Simulated scan of single mutants.
Amino acid sequence: MRRDNKLTTIGFDADDTLWQNEQFFRLTEKRFAAMLADHGEEEHISARLLEAERRNLAVYGFGIKGFTLSMIETAVEVTQGRVPASVISEILDAGREMLSHPIEALPHARETVEKLAGAFRLVLITKGDLFDQERKLTGSGLGDLFDAVEIVSDKSAATYSRLFSRHGDGPAKSMMVGNSLKSDVVPAIEAGGWGVHVPHELTWVLEHVEAPAAEPRFRQISDLGQLPGLVESIVSAG
């Protein structure tokens, strides 16, 4: 692998690409629905929570803190303002537990990042709460392998154009790797880079879009263990 080829910079998403994340949201959502079982079926409570999350993204952004506030808002709504203080306390406890959960690396995460480090500029590009993302990166033990870390409020083509120009040789010589087609793959391709989709069994519904299958710079792999080989093939073809 040589850095003088056309691909010089690789960006990695964090949550559900390098380590587990969504599963903790799903478990907490089930716990939340159980707290409010007297006010509706699990599907109804979850649907109301999703509505609140959708409304609140522009205000709270992505992450556990916004999720916790959306749970509180939903509890107030479905109980018509009569939610007990004990339930609010339990919701806050659930949020704190999520914020302190041990980091669970996904298969091949470390070995793949280690193989690519040094041969390419590696940039971690993740969205969410600053403190929580920093905590997870530290807990993962992967932080020293990245040349740069960017925690952003959202991911768009403009985001990738800016970051790959700042930390690399521009989006045309860059690749973004992640589990979200909406946040990691499509906007990276729109910016002019490569977009590599690594599907995760759990992906938040608000991150679902159609795969850009017709795009020549779109690739999909089943796990991170396949990434070095894919990168080698792209570099060799260049």
Rank of each mutant, 00 (worst) to 15 (best):
L116R: 02
K127L: 00
T138D: 15
G139Y: 09
T112K: 08
R135M: 09
A172M: 14
A109F: 01
A109V: 08
A157D: 10
T159H: 04
A117V: 12
S174V: 06
M175H: 03
D154A: 07
K173Y: 09
R135L: 06
V149A: 02
S165Q: 14
V152M: 04
L130D: 14
V152K: 04
S153M: 15
K155R: 11
A158Q: 14
T112G: 07
G143I: 11
P107I: 01
S140K: 06
P107A: 01
R166W: 05
K173T: 12
D154Q: 14
H167S: 14
D144W: 04
L130F: 10
D132G: 05
E114K: 08
T138S: 15
S156A: 10
P171E: 00
L124Q: 12
R121F: 04
S161E: 15
G141C: 05
G128D: 00
K173Q: 14
S174L: 07
L124T: 07
G168F: 06
R166K: 15
K136C: 03
G170E: 07
E150P: 02
V113S: 04
V113I: 11
R162M: 12
F164Y: 05
K127P: 01
L142D: 07
L163T: 01
G143T: 11
S140G: 12
A158H: 10
